[in-house]
Design a protein around this nucleic acid. Structure first.
Lengths: 349, 349
DNA sequence: TTGTACGCGTTATCAG
DNA sequence: CTGATAACGCGTACAA
């Protein structure tokens, strides 16, 4: 048994490149070369010895030291507005997968919907030498973006723009998605549409959706009545009142709600639950986002599903291209939503 | 204006301790001391110069270099069986908060319910010099735990044990929680209980819950009939059949389902939705876990809510204590569940 | 082809 | 109280 594969003595906790070098009877440089350039420049005999030593010592290089040396950490920073948001988690999944495929690791920073911590996130993450950022933030420009650029690290935005900045963005084709939903409702005979959204203040995707809804109404002409209700986070009951008022005015006839995201869908459903309004009987419904519970609420809630996995995956691919130094102009990758038609959007009665 | 606060020239991308030293006209060592031991050992005049330099250059030390030097990286590794699981996300939140409070960062590794990647997770994470692990894994012992210990890094398990290993564990008091749910159902007049769980193969929390359910039945005696259905992941429709069969046999009278977790609750609800069975009319229901959608399904789904935030938070606290070298015996921190009583568990009819 | 020596940004030791 | 200097683990010119 060659001494290099002797495992009678326990492997020390930290095994460094020096240990491998000693075990193989070569220098650190040789081991390093074996690792990085493959065994192209190595004599077969030496390469074999190094390989054996690495194997028996279970050596793996320290990414920290590597990062320190060559600037690249194989880390990417993911900043998320709110991990509680199912959309964020779904994107996270795609991001994680893409990173794994490319030999990167994700460093996650959840800012819990707190503006102030946005800067903090960039600071922390970039102190850890992340090579780039994927940002799913609040949308208000807190200087985080500028900060990231100042550090010379590429950024890809997800779902939401920041200010009118020129950065890569991956997200949903909001305009088309809204039309998809609205046309579906119209096709099913609905004549009164209420668009329910959260405070849109600065969140581009929300603004785009409302905007698209308004232009849809405009194009549809007099045959279709529509309104927008902006629900505030601290007064969720206002929405219930608004809903009641609206249902009253429309005579509860051919009226449907279009909800801007999963959180809003939940609130609408809560309101209906409390008031005894039933989807498919008293009002129609389509919501953005398609979390797992949509099919089991009432007659099944119809949804515009976002290709969340793809969004996360493409965001990373996009970032990696920047990392390779490709000097393309800022891109917008807009993906189509998918209509999931369920009971809540079938013609009433 | 003193030259140290002159910001007319742009700040270079990488500002090192050496830059600060030069700017302040002192040595690296002095700056380092100022940073680490405070200004206790510094002459006020020098301390002020250093402070000014740090401020004007916006210097912050590199955690990578620090990690390399002193072994401690201020990183903790979080390994999660499946980010899609709301429970995991909820715990993640608590973990993240605790880490932030303690000046640590989280490195996330999602193994996507894939046994094989468990080892991989430990390897990757510990190569990044994480100081310890929080593990929410599949439960099958894949050697991940041994691997972590071999590297001399502390481990805290969340929700699930691994083998019969002696490690810190933070989770739900499953026995009490099951009794809480079952007693609630019995108190509301239910006489037939069906416990629906996923494949429990090796997942300790699932096993404990089933076990607790069985002993509850045993103690309750003849007045209460109970069964356990183990639903397999690849044949979700079997559960629907089992449900139908069971409802038939019990004469759909005073029958209630007890679901082992959120995923199962979803499946049960799907089955009921397809079959037209209504909670609160045809059968009662209580489920473990209380995701946001539970209140809006049917008459509201009753639940045993887990203190997920606390679980994550305490797991980190526990880990930090180990990091401080405290040599306590392996602890088990079991937290109580909370009954959320809603329409689905009210007496039928 | 292989080894030597230096530097990445810090901290710690040892002089002064 | 402060400043050189070595070392952490690694990659890479440069020399051999």
């Amino acid at each position: 048994m060659p001494s290099t594969s002797d495992h009678s003595h326990p492997i020390p906790a930290k095994v460094t490149i020096q240990d491998v070098a000693s075990a193989a009877g070569v220098s650190k440089a040789t081991v390093s070369r074996y690792l990085n350039r493959g065994d192209a420049q190595l004599s077969p005999e030496i390469a074999a010895r190094v390989a054996a030593a690495i194997e028996s010592l279970r050596y793996s290089p320290s990414p920290m030291a590597q990062a320190l040396k060559r600037g690249r950490s194989r880390l990417i920073g993911l900043v998320v507005a709110d991990v509680t948001n199912p959309f964020s988690v779904a994107v996270l999944q795609g991001v994680e997968k893409a990173c794994r495929d490319a030999g990167f690791m994700v460093m996650l920073f959840n800012i819990g919907n707190d503006d102030i911590r946005e800067r903090e996130a960039i600071e922390s993450l970039s102190s850890y030498q992340v090579e780039g950022f994927i940002l799913h933030t609040l949308g208000r420009d807190t200087g985080a973006l500028a900060e990231a650029r100042r550090k010379g690290k590429p950024v890809v935005l997800v779902d939401r723009r920041i200010g009118d900045s020129q950065v890569d963005l991956v997200g949903l084709d909001n305009a088309s998605a809204v039309r998809l939903a609205a046309r579906h409702l119209v096709a099913n005979g609905f004549k009164h549409l209420l668009y329910v959204t959260g405070a849109a203040k600065g969140i581009s995707s929300r603004e785009e959706r409302v905007e698209a809804f308004r232009s849809f109404l405009h194009e549809a002409g007099q045959g279709l009545q529509g309104e927008v209700h902006e629900s505030s986070d601290d007064k969720p009951l206002d929405m219930e009142l608004a809903l009641a008022d609206w249902l009253g005015r429309t005579g509860a006839e051919a009226a449907a709600v279009l909800s801007a995201n999963a959180v809003m869908s939940l609130r609408v459903a809560e309101a209906c639950s409390r008031q005894g309004w039933q989807f498919g009987r008293d009002l129609g419904f389509v919501g953005f986002d398609d979390p797992s519970w949509m099919p089991i609420v009432g007659p099944g809630l119809s949804a515009i599903a976002q290709p969340t996995d793809d969004i996360g995956y493409l965001a990373v691919r996009c970032l990696l291209e920047r990392l390779r130094g490709e000097q393309l102009p800022p891109r917008q990758i807009l993906l189509p939503g998918t209509l999931m038609s369920r009971g809540s959007s079938r013609p009433l009665k």
